[in-house]
Design a protein around this nucleic acid. Sequence first.
DNA 1: CTCCTATCAAGAATGATTCCTATTAGAGGA
DNA 2: TCCTCTAATAGGAATCATTCTTGATAGGAG
Lengths: 130, 130
Amino acid sequence: MAIARRSVKREAILALLRSVTCHPSAEWLHARLLTDFPDLSLGTVYRNLRQLTDEGLIVSVGVIGGQERFDGNTAPHGHFVCRRCGAVTDVPLKGGRSFHRDVERLTGGRVQGVETTAYGLCAKCLDIRA
Amino acid sequence: MAIARRSVKREAILALLRSVTCHPSAEWLHARLLTDFPDLSLGTVYRNLRQLTDEGLIVSVGVIGGQERFDGNTAPHGHFVCRRCGAVTDVPLKGGRSFHRDVERLTGGRVQGVETTAYGLCAKCLDIRA
DNA sequence: CTCCTATCAAGAATGATTCCTATTAGAGGA
DNA sequence: TCCTCTAATAGGAATCATTCTTGATAGGAG
């Protein structure tokens, strides 16, 4: 099977995802890229996000508020997700790869990625609440 | 604000979730409870799962294959999710609460829960593949 | 008994994601 | 250059989990 042909739009999606410190949804990326590619369809964004995820070039942060969120930073790090506003913050991780190894040893499976996520309320939403 | 009234069906959902070692979806729970409560509606399962999650009595494992999965075991532990078949396995966690503390210190927010999940292929799906 | 509130079923509505189809564009060979 | 094959793409329809709305029911407080 031929290696995936390069695609200007897929590369633009990847570049945007890498240039940004937030954790966008497909819709956000689509809206943002529409200025450079007026004929970009949302379906194309979804298809390419999936492909990039399968290739390991990007990472899925999971579904937050009904929308899947992605991260262009594949270096191991954790996330903090605000349950109220949906904001996602990167948090450095100390642990190393011990969990990765434990899982493979205990389950006999192969681990492709580890996601550590804390859920709660961000500082901003704590203020609003108070 | 009155405390949530007790509800037979909510308690049945919670009991089933706690009695089981798998990580069911709303639909699975609904099908399973239908024998005891023939008039249980799927909407009721969703509403009560959300409420139980908000109360911290159960935990969401995240959306896997388009369906949200829940866990009645609220003790800290990690998960291993097979990307092929969607199976979820519990994995003990060594780390302790350092990530929890780090997040609160770095972001100023309040952490309600931490989810550590490894993604990959389970032993069974590795065999099929080979 | 009478509000007031929580629960519930049923089904409609929502909305993210995927699927389908026809079209386009690029690479390699003749 | 022209042809052919294949991947990429747009556009829109289809899918499907989840949420919302409505109307009905029941329990507790006064």
